[in-house]
Design a protein around this nucleic acid. Structure first.
Length: 274
DNA sequence: ATAGGCGCCTGCTGGC
DNA sequence: TGCCAGCAGGCGCCTA
């Protein structure tokens, strides 16, 4: 679910209510997340103060003045600060009590594809992200890197955009939306990309992600921001989930196919192969 | 190097 | 009305 714009929204909305506050308690549910809780980890968290919260790709990094909490929302993760007297909904797996006990930081995840891990310091987090070869943020991609990363790949653009080693943060929705925006067919091979196509695609990705952030991300079913409110970009989709509906540019019905293992939506008239 | 399939989970929808 | 296959914003592992 949550891709870069959704994770960015969560981070921005958690910053106000979270930074400067102290963790006073941690309680975990019985069912494990994708990564099981480390034994005794709550002992290392209690008493820590939240110094900052940032995003890297689809990862949330909570700086606890040294140690860092690294959170991934998977498909259905929710990370919110709420008054402690609001009942905990089912599938709430971790609850962090905050200073005087009036508020709680809650991690909820229906499908449990998400993860919450504690790292001893920033260097350990950097090593973890480097180990999985997490690529650059889409907003500051060096032109040489971009050209090389795309044109060296003998695979389709859809697969390239979903690969977190190429760009960090793009997922299924924004891959489809960016490809439509750049008028490129998702099956176009990276090796076939000309300089003008590369630049068009890069700019489209940035534009789509920035617009989605201003709408606070896309809520299809589970996603909510850090404040608990839904996003609004789902109303702005040009192709994603619009199968059979007319292309907003040319009127031809949007089609869906399977590519790189994911549903892939595009306009068969507007998106030609180079 | 890349594609494709599966598994991890739960909930919802559409078709019969 | 009821049941069940299929599908869903992700990712990592395996095989060919």
């Amino acid at each position: 679910m949550p891709e870069l714009p959704e994770v960015e929204t969560v981070v921005r909305e958690l910053r106000g209510p979270l930074v400067g506050r102290r963790i006073t308690s941690v309680s975990c549910g019985r069912k494990p997340l994708r990564v099981p809780f480390a034994r005794g980890w709550s002992k290392d968290l209690v008493g820590r103060c939240v110094h900052g919260i940032e995003r890297r790709g689809k990862w949330i990094l909570v700086d606890l003045e040294g140690p860092m909490l690294v959170v991934h929302l998977g498909m259905t993760g929710q990370f919110t600060v709420v008054p402690a007297d609001i009942p905990r909904r089912p599938h709430t797996h971790i609850v962090f009590g905050l200073d005087d006990g009036t508020d709680e930081l809650r991690f909820r995840d229906v499908r449990r594809f998400g993860s919450v891990c504690l790292y001893p310091d920033r260097a350990a987090v950097a090593a973890r992200l480097a180990a999985q070869k997490l690529g650059p943020e889409p907003f500051d991609v060096a032109p040489d890197y971009w050209r090389h990363a795309v044109t060296r790949a003998n695979r389709c653009l859809k697969a390239i955009l979903l690969d977190q080693r190429v760009l960090a943060g793009v997922g299924n929705i924004y891959a489809d939306e960016s490809l439509f925006e750049s008028r490129l067919h998702p099956a176009t091979l990276g090796v076939d990309m000309k300089p003008r196509h590369l630049e068009r695609l890069r700019q489209a990705i940035v534009a789509v992600l920035e617009k989605a952030i201003t709408f606070r991300g896309s809520s299809i079913r589970d996603y909510i921001g850090g404040s608990g409110k839904k996003g609004g970009f789902q109303k702005e989709f040009r192709v994603y989930g619009r199968t059979g509906e007319p292309c907003l540019n040319c009127g031809v019905p949007i089609v869906v196919t399977r590519m790189a293992g994911r549903s892939t939506h595009f306009c068969p008239r507007c998106q030609k192969r180079p």
